[in-house]
C-alpha cells in the first residue's frame, strides 16, 4: 500500500513538482505581461492596476 505523496514545502518545489501542468497553463501568450519593464528591473505595477497590464493600444 502506497502513502499519498505530500505536497512540496516550498513554492519553487511545488512549481517544479507540477511542471507539466503549469507549463501548459502559462503557455497561452495572452496571459503574459505586455508592459516591458525598464532594463534590469522587474515590473511591479501589475500588482497595483490592471491598466498597467494592458497598456492602451500598446
Amino acid at each position: 500500500m502506497s502513502e499519498k505523496p505530500e505536497e512540496p514545502e516550498t513554492l519553487s518545489a511545488f512549481v517544479e513538482a507540477h511542471r507539466d501542468e503549469l507549463s501548459e497553463l502559462v503557455a497561452a501568450p495572452d496571459r503574459r505581461a505586455s508592459c516591458p519593464p525598464p532594463p534590469g528591473v522587474e515590473f511591479r505595477a501589475d500588482v497595483l492596476l490592471s491598466a498597467c497590464i494592458d497598456p492602451p493600444n500598446g
Partner: peptide
Amino acid sequence: FDHALRYVAAELDGRARERAMAPRD
C-alpha cells in the same frame, strides 16, 4: 492570476532567482 502565472513562468524558465534580485521599481 496573470501575476501569479508570470512568477510560475519565471520559475519554470529558471529566471525566478534573477527576478528576485532585480532592483525595486
